[in-house]
Amino acid sequence: MNLLQAAILALVQGLTEFLPISSSAHLILVSALTDWEDQGLTFDVAVHMGSLVAVVCYFRTDLIEIVRDFTRSLTGKGHTSSSRLGWAVILGTIPVGLAGLIFRDVVAMHLRDPLILAFGLMFFGLLLGLADWRRKGDRNEHSLTWKDIMVIGCAQAVALIPGTSRSGITMTAGLFMGLSRDGAARFSFLLSIPVIFLAGALEARHLLNQPEPVQWGIIGIATLLSGISAYLCIHYFLKFIRTVGMQPFVVYRLLLGLMLVWVYV
């Protein structure tokens, strides 16, 4: 892999990880339109870690407060909205963790078909559009109830289906449960932290058995680009949806799904 290929793949990963448009669809499309060799496990882990650092840095103030109040709640010092949000992130991660352990091999072997990916893009894109169009609430992420957490958490498990988009389906569920666009997006981003970390740790475990040499210079640049692009993506996405909404992403998903059908059929 040369530097240009690594830079393009890192930017694609960083820009699409947190948008409701499916990062896996874009990486598959890049693969379909080029003859580049597989980027390898080390590269995948590195760019995901770049995205993880980006979301942690962006929400650093919130995370410090969440960790502080969550720790205090464990020692019997009472709950705050931040400690409850910490519990929400933990409980909301359990369904996707269990689903990943149970269905990971099934997804890898039977659901990687590009047409399934295209169907996921279009169907769940329309669902996102419906949720945004019908949204009735204006609650933020600190107002989550146990019912909200379980619905959004179970929705996140559905993201194992290629093309769904983890961020897209959790925002969809949040909107249906009465959260504001901003609240649904912010909780989705907070939920991504343990998911990206656990997925990266699982992939990194296999690196110990990978004998091939690592291009550390290219890997470092790719990680940096992924992190910077992901950070900017979060910042401007939150600004964008407050005024425009989710509909442009719905249209984009439909067009991308049709493009995948055209490429592979």
Rank of each mutant, 00 (worst) to 15 (best):
L33M: 13
L33Y: 11
D38R: 12
D38S: 14
Q39W: 04
G40Y: 01
G40A: 09
G40W: 02
G40Q: 04
T42C: 00
D44Q: 06
D44G: 04
D44V: 00
V45E: 09
A46Y: 05
A46P: 08
H48M: 09
H48K: 08
G50V: 00
G50P: 02
S51F: 00
L52Y: 02
V53I: 12
V56S: 05
F59H: 10
R60Q: 08
R60Y: 08
D62P: 06
I64Y: 15
E65S: 15
I66C: 11
V67G: 07
V67Y: 14
R68S: 12
F70A: 13
F70T: 13
T71Q: 11
T71V: 12
L74T: 01
K77M: 05
G78L: 09
G78C: 08
G78Y: 03
H79V: 03
T80H: 07
T80Y: 03
S81Q: 15
S81T: 11
S81L: 11
S81N: 14
L85T: 12
L85Q: 05
G86T: 05
W87A: 03
W87G: 00
W87F: 11
V89H: 02
I90N: 03
L91G: 00
L91N: 03
G92T: 04
T93L: 08
P95H: 10
G97K: 11
G97I: 11
A99C: 06
G100R: 08
G100A: 06
L101M: 13
L101D: 00
F103A: 10
D105Q: 15
V106C: 00
V106I: 06
A108P: 00
L111F: 13
R112Q: 14
D113Y: 03
D113F: 04
L115Q: 15
L117M: 14
F119L: 15
L121H: 12
F124R: 09
F124P: 02
G125V: 12
